[in-house]
Design a protein around this nucleic acid. Structure first.
Lengths: 221, 221
DNA sequence: GGGGATTGTAACTGTTTTGTAACTATTTTT
DNA sequence: AAAAATAGTTACAAAACAGTTACAATCCCC
């Protein structure tokens, strides 16, 4: 049960400090000093169990990194000097699991990290819906034993449906969840993606249309 | 979807402040000024969705209250002036969902509360009226276990009846509530929708006609 | 900077929704 | 009891909405 933690923090001293402490506490650690590199590193391996992310970073900032990390199903703890309430609210609302203000005690960080990991441990390894299997670890979708390739956006969209299965999702919720609150795009874009997912998985009746509202993934309990 | 929040805080000014803000944000609030009373109150009703708990309380302190709350499956956010890391660590390790240090911004509290509630969202609130079940989360209506599809307008209309159950609703109120004040349409349009709902749900006698006025959804308490 | 993959959007098509009108049934009034 | 008013019901056409696809802009990796 060796947990691998991403540490994305541009201040080398703090980065080192965090990494050392995590290692002492028994974690595997992958440090990055800027957002771009971290972002690139994600695609290659995505076996991270949690990310500790500074908000102000060279390259890509923490807020920009958040959706990517969420797509890989990696919980995020923001770890930053930005103590203003606006940032906290934005960070948490956008889907960070916690928000710790610097300077912090290492012990508190460790405890909050442990809690986040604990919460995320309950997730099923492989999700099965009808004849479709989804492996979030591998980010891979299978239907009747053969892989169905979903484009990144389609996959993310699918995962949002899975996360809120049997819940009505409005187009706006999907837009906000997949592109972020500030995205100013056509709500119809959602329709296109849903259409593509339905087609690839032959899910005409699994993703139900809720007229005037949005969609709902129907899964029997 | 009205969430009921326990507020256990002995400083009346802070207690009031929190309660007021929660109420403004649309929560139901149950305040207690000491641990003993809160503990006693728990046994009676345990329909609380979250508890905001001060640690230093007369009677029973927050740490003592925590196991009790957890027994009732109520998530706890500690909300306290004790900023020392030891307390934080103890609180979180013992099973609190979050730990906010006073003085805090109300907005941060609201966001963190919202996140805790979201995580605990296991409770499906379903409205039952006779043999009809309405699940607003799913936006779905069931009768005797089989889904009855209601068109968007029919569903909204039904929900308005549910919201004002056992209250007489005039055609004008229904028009205004469902189409908006500015809508310039026939009042008879309402009749058509009511007719369709009655037919689909076999509710000839559940939605009563009030001659010359409008309709009323009759629900026994 | 070039080539391939991705994706948001526009445009077109097919489908569903819905306000209303017209007709019928029922209730109230005279 | 007839007339009048009100409510129930249904069909339908316009409008709104959703499905689909092609494509251009963008992104990303060599």
């Amino acid at each position: 049960m060796n947990r691998n933690i991403l540490v994305i923090e541009d201040e080398p001293a703090i980065n080192d400090l965090i990494c050392m402490n995590l290692e002492v506490a028994g974690y595997m650690v992958t440090p990055f000093l800027d957002g771009e590199k971290a972002s690139a590193g994600l695609a290659r391996h995505h076996e991270y169990d949690c990310a500790l992310v500074d908000i102000m970073l060279p390259g890509k900032d923490g807020f920009a990194l958040l959706p990517e990390l969420k797509n890989f199903n990696i919980p995020v703890i923001f770890l930053t000097a930005k103590a203003d309430v606006g940032s906290k609210v934005k960070g948490l609302k956008d889907g960070a699991e916690d928000y710790i203000v610097k300077p912090f005690e290492m012990l508190e960080l460790l405890v909050r990290l442990e809690k986040v990991l604990e919460r995320h441990m309950t997730q099923a390894e492989v999700i099965q819906i009808g004849d479709v299997k989804i492996d979030p670890q591998q980010r891979k979708v299978m239907k009747n034993g053969t892989e169905v390739y979903l484009k990144p956006m389609e996959y993310d969209c699918l995962m949002m449906f899975v996360r809120y299965q049997n819940k009505a999702l409005t187009r706006e919720q999907l837009l906000a969840g997949l592109w972020g609150q500030e995205f100013e795009g056509e709500t119809r874009t959602v329709d296109a993606h849903v259409g593509r997912i339905r087609k690839k998985l032959d899910w005409q009746d699994v993703i139900k249309t809720i007229p005037k509202i949005g969609y709902r993934l129907e899964v029997e309990e």
